[in-house]
């Protein structure tokens, strides 16, 4: 019976660690350790059937899906609506906008992805495409507009980075406005 009490204490410790930790990957790994220990406890309390299901689902499938979603979250998706080479990357001379955005992504450890147009239909689980930034050119004042979500904390850093450039303006939109085609 001593092993059971030890394992239960370990479960409580790991649960506290999961709640207090800030690193995503550490949380996922300790979550799978948590379900492994839970499976051991199920087995010791004579429920091997539940233990098998817990091992397969709790310590393999759920952490895999979580790790995948974390790796997808590391992308910064930009929609390019310009005609000129403001956002184009090349070996000799890349555009000013591209330099700003790549510096911004380097600061946060994100992966920059620039797309020319939206796909026709989205057939994933989520139909709404999550676009972080739209780059446009204003007709009258000939300034470049960076449109992002107001709720995103990252926008403040982008605003600060773009402040020295005269012809760039950062606009923060309400939630849902960025989805218009």
């Amino acid at each position: 019976m001593n092993i059971n009490i030890l394992l239960q204490l370990l479960l409580i410790l790991i649960a506290v660690f999961i709640i207090s930790s800030k690193d995503n990957l550490k949380i996922v790994i300790s979550y799978s350790v948590f379900s492994l220990i839970a499976a051991c406890l199920y087995f010791l309390y004579k429920a091997p059937d539940v233990a098998l299901a817990e091992i397969a689902v709790g310590s393999a499938i759920v952490p895999l899906i979580l790790i995948l979603s974390i790796s997808k979250q590391r992308e910064f998706i930009v929609l390019n609506r310009l005609e000129d080479s403001f956002l184009e990357a090349s070996d000799e001379r890349s555009g000013i906008g591209y330099e700003i955005l790549s510096e911004f992504c380097k600061y946060y450890g994100l992966k920059l992805k620039i797309y020319k147009k939206l796909p026709g239909k989205a057939n994933g689980i989520f139909s709404h495409r999550n676009i972080d930034l739209i780059v446009e050119k204003h007709h009258l004042s000939r300034r470049y507009l960076f449109k992002g979500k107001e709720s995103s904390i990252l926008m403040y850093k982008l605003e600060k980075l773009a402040a020295p450039y005269e012809d760039i303006k950062v606009i923060k939109l309400e939630e849902g406005e960025t989805d218009e085609q």
Binding site: I61, L64, I65, L68, S69, K72, E75, I114, Y115, K116, K117, L118, P119, A122, N123, G124, I125, F126, R129
Partner: peptide, 20 residues
């Protein structure tokens, strides 16, 4: 069923890459 769920999850951004 589980493989279908996971494949749908993975192919979330795949069609996006083709257009670029």
């Amino acid at each position: 069923g589980l493989i279908a769920v996971f494949t749908a999850f993975i192919s979330e951004n795949e069609d996006f890459d083709d257009t670029y």
